Simulated assay, not measured.
Amino acid sequence: MTHDGFNLRIGINPIGWSNDDLPSLGGETPLSTALSEGREIGYQGFELGNKFPREPAALRQLMAGYGLEVVSGWYSGCLAARSVEEEIAAVEPHLRLLAENGCKVMVYGEVADSIQGERRIPLNKRPRFRDEDAFKRYGDRLTAFGRHLLGHGVRLAYHHHMGAYVEAPADIDRLMLHTGEDVGLLFDSGHAYFGGGDPVAMLSKHIDRVCHVHCKDVRPAIVRHARNRHWSFLDSVLNGVFTVPGDGAIDFAGIVAVLRTHRYHGWLVVEAEQDPALAPSYAYAQKGYRTLRALVDGAPLQEVA
């Protein structure tokens, strides 16, 4: 906690060491490397990846051995295509894993019709709801599902994401309009920029619903190439569209200022998928941590150069 009462924790996703969607990017790196290096750098917790145990007690024991917390974990939701009852049945093991490890939020990523994992499909082919009524029905299902999660002490943190139904600023506006307070927003700085928005403005607009924050930076020239050359999401990642805070163009000082003003209490999670052969995992994870730590603590940014 800083002198002004601003209190949050800084965590990381293991994707900078080992990418779940692109195993060629660090797939050979053991989970122990990510956990030991992350803890050494100063991170307090990790989001889950596919190398983590899926049994609650085993996960708790693993993380306790490193002195780390479980921050949250991605859930591949399909409420754009199936009922609330079906989703509740599908989520049960993941919900139990998170709840029994003290997580307060669940990262919800809509994967129905999503092209985010399809390397041959350009981003401009992403799915869209056919009309406002379809979006509203989707929002109603999300709200009911979010209410179920809250009954177990976990809040739905909706991840706006490239290649999915909710990508652009207008999509996020409609999502917030058509869902109730039981649905929280995961603000992702990199996807906000890549999706065509101003990250600081977007965060400010929806701060009352933000319950989780992903911190990734962007390389604007690669964003332009991705759009102009009709790249897929995965090709954009392979070409280096994302990086860690402090290594790109996003105004993280502005982001932290908004969070400070509104007394955000939660996690900042560095999540910057890129090729560890080109962006060494430890060095980049350290740069991301030092950038955020300095901003949170109110230290001059030049100290983290």
Rank of each mutant, 00 (worst) to 15 (best):
R126N: 03
G67D: 08
G196Y: 15
A64T: 14
R290H: 12
T291Q: 05
P169R: 04
F6T: 07
D235V: 11
Y75Q: 03
H206M: 13
A285K: 00
L238D: 13
G26C: 13
D297T: 02
G16V: 00
A81G: 12
M162P: 06
R82C: 06
A164S: 10
W267A: 14
P23W: 15
D188S: 11
H191S: 01
A221G: 02
P245S: 12
A90W: 07
V70H: 00
L25Q: 14
R293I: 02
F46T: 01
L62M: 06
A305W: 08
S36M: 13
H178K: 05
A192G: 12
A283E: 13
Q302L: 13
V105Q: 08
V241F: 15
R174N: 10
E118Q: 12
L177N: 07
E100K: 08
A99C: 01
V154C: 08
D198L: 03
P127A: 01
L48I: 04
R155P: 01
L186Y: 01
R229S: 07
G16W: 01
Y108I: 00
V270R: 10
A272Q: 15
P199N: 10
S32M: 07
E303V: 13
C78M: 14
H230R: 09
F52D: 07
P53H: 12
G65Q: 05
G163K: 03
A89C: 10
H230S: 13
D173C: 10
A279D: 02
R229I: 00
G197H: 09
H214A: 12
Y43K: 09
M176K: 00
Y284T: 04
G266V: 01
G298M: 11
Q61S: 14
L142Q: 09
T243R: 10
F46P: 01
L142T: 05
G65C: 05
P276C: 04
H265F: 03
K287E: 10
Y282E: 07
V270W: 11
R130M: 06
Q61C: 06
E118N: 12
T179R: 04
H230D: 09
I250F: 14
G38R: 04
E86S: 15
R96S: 14
A57N: 12
T261D: 06
V107T: 11
R224L: 06
V210T: 14
S18N: 09
E92D: 08
G27W: 15
V269W: 11
A112S: 03
I207M: 12
K205D: 06
E92H: 05
K125D: 04
G180D: 14
M162H: 08
M162G: 15
A249K: 05
L203N: 04
A90V: 03
R60I: 01
T143G: 09
R174D: 08
L234F: 13
A64D: 13
L177C: 04
